[in-house]
Simulated assay, not measured.
Amino acid sequence: MKSKPTKQRAQTVVILGEDDNDRQAIAVLVAALRTDIPRANLKPLRKPMALVRNVPPGRLPGHATRVSAVLRAFNVRTPIRCVLMHEDADEVEPAHEALIAKIESAFRSLPWPVHAVVPAWEMESWWFLFPDAVQQVRPSWQPPRQYAGRDVGKIRNAKEELKKAVRPPGAAAKFQTYVEADSVQIAEKIAGSAELSRPSFARSGSWQAFLETVARL
């Protein structure tokens, strides 16, 4: 009598990041870029906090050990396929490259592939690549077209710049401009865009790095 094949549990892509809005937005974008990965298998986690930008080199091993302990406990219940770690560069391109290297080096001892997701300056710089998608979130906004044909990775204080960019001239003082909680809806609009994987309005090295990272999952 043949034994029944063992059913393997689906493996999860864990998403760590600076806050819930960032983690959820990344999950939306990854789901759109990798339709072969079920949305249910993308799991944003509030803990552990894996940020490394301001961690001195001597403290990185202990930091990685603490992060690893939390993920190993999670893996007992839900097998992990890989880990996406988001952290804003808080600096213009090419600062994202050094932070990507620091994240992936700090956690290279983890038993799963670790992929860094690092926007330059902040995730809001990526939203400038898709002005029409941004405007769709709130019809009262004007589309942020100020950076047509430019490198949005050079925008300093991208979050504050986006708040100003969507505000039409003469808007009332109580005008509802961009807030971080809008980022998930913006990601959803971008996910439905034909230019998701190849934006033509502007350019961003950190967005391209993100696309290449997602392709490797």
Rank of each mutant, 00 (worst) to 15 (best):
W126V: 01
A64R: 09
Q176K: 15
L217Q: 06
R198S: 14
A40K: 13
A95I: 03
A173H: 15
N157A: 11
A173E: 15
V83Y: 03
P169F: 01
D22I: 07
A209R: 14
E161P: 00
P56E: 09
V137L: 10
P119M: 00
V179K: 15
N41I: 08
E188W: 03
A194K: 12
A50V: 02
V114L: 04
R216Y: 07
V13A: 05
Q142E: 12
P199I: 03
E212N: 15
V184A: 07
I15T: 08
L71T: 06
D20N: 13
R156T: 12
S3F: 10
P144D: 00
R145Y: 01
R145I: 07
P143W: 08
N21A: 14
W141H: 08
E91M: 00
N75D: 15
A173K: 15
V117A: 10
V214G: 06
P111T: 02
V92L: 12
D182A: 02
H115S: 07
I103P: 02
E97I: 14
M49C: 13
K102D: 01
S105R: 14
L42A: 01
S193C: 10
L162G: 01
A27C: 10
A187V: 03
F201P: 08
S3R: 10
I155D: 03
A158I: 06
L110Y: 08
A10R: 15
A120R: 00
Y178G: 03
F210N: 02
R203I: 05
E87Q: 11
L29R: 09
W207N: 05
D19G: 06
V184F: 06
H115Q: 14
R53P: 09
V134S: 13
S200G: 12
V117P: 11
H96V: 07
A98F: 08
I155Y: 03
H115P: 05
G62W: 02
F130I: 00
A172W: 06
L84A: 07
K174C: 10
R59M: 13
D20K: 14
G58K: 06
E188I: 08
K2R: 13
L33F: 04
P169I: 04
E97Q: 13
E122R: 12
R77T: 13
A194N: 13
A181G: 05
I186D: 01
Q146F: 06
R46F: 14
R77E: 11
A73L: 13
R203C: 12
V76D: 12
A209H: 14
A187K: 04
R145A: 05
A202C: 12
P144Q: 00
E87F: 00
P44E: 06
T213F: 00
G153C: 03
W141D: 09
P5F: 02
A40H: 12
V184I: 15
F128W: 10
R81A: 14
Q185P: 01
V166W: 05
A148W: 09
A98P: 10
I80Y: 06
I103L: 08
C82Y: 05
Q176C: 11
I80C: 01
E195K: 08
P144S: 01
P131H: 07
I100G: 00
Q185T: 00
L42Q: 03
Q11M: 10
V214S: 04
A73P: 08
E212I: 13
M85A: 14
T6V: 15
Q208M: 11
L51T: 07
T213N: 04
R23I: 06
R81K: 11
D22W: 04
L60C: 11
F107A: 03
H115K: 14
F130G: 08
R108C: 11
R167T: 14
D19N: 05
A215V: 04
